[in-house]
Amino acid sequence: MSRQLSDVEDVLQNALNKHGLSVVPLLQEIQEHFRYLPEEVLRMLSRKTGIPLIEIYHAATFYNSLSLTPRARHQIKICAGTTCHIRGGGKLIEEIFQVLGIRPGEITPNGEFMLETVNCLGCCAFAPAMVVDGKYYGNLTPGEVRKILSKLRERAALMEK
C-alpha cells in the first residue's frame, strides 16, 4: 500500500510540474495514468495543491472524456451526430441494447463492454458509424452490429480460456 501511495505521489508531482495548477490538464494526466479518476487520488490532489475539492469534482463531472468510474474492457462508441441520426443511428443503439442489455453510459455487469455515444466521429459520409476500441465501422445496419458484437464476444471468451 505504501508503495502504491508513493506511486500516486509521483504521478501527481509529475503532473504538477507539467501543468501547474491548471485543473483540467491535471485530471487528464491522472486519467491517462489510472484510466479513470480515482476518488482518493483527487482528494490527494486537493490536499497537495489547495485547489478546493469541489472545483476538481465539478471539472471531473463536467467533461465527457473524464470519468470517475473505471472503464470497461471494450469501449463501444456510437456516433450520435446528426447525419448518423437521420441515417438510422438510433437503431444501432436499440440493437446493442437487445444484444448486451446496456444503454449509453452503462457497462455490462461483467465489465466487458461499455456503451457511449459521441457527438460526431466526423465520418458522416459513412453514417451511421461506430468505433469499437479505436476501430471505425461505417455504413452499419443493426444486423452488422450484431455480427461485430458476437465476434468480439467470441474473442473475449477465447481470451478467458
Binding site: L121, G122, C123, C124, A125, F126, A129, Y136, Y137, G138
Partner: peptide
C-alpha cells in the same frame, strides 16, 4: 501518389 488519410477514408 496522394492517399487520403482522413477519418472517413480510414473507415473504409
Amino acid at each position: 501518389i496522394v492517399v487520403c488519410g482522413d477519418t472517413g477514408c480510414t473507415v473504409c
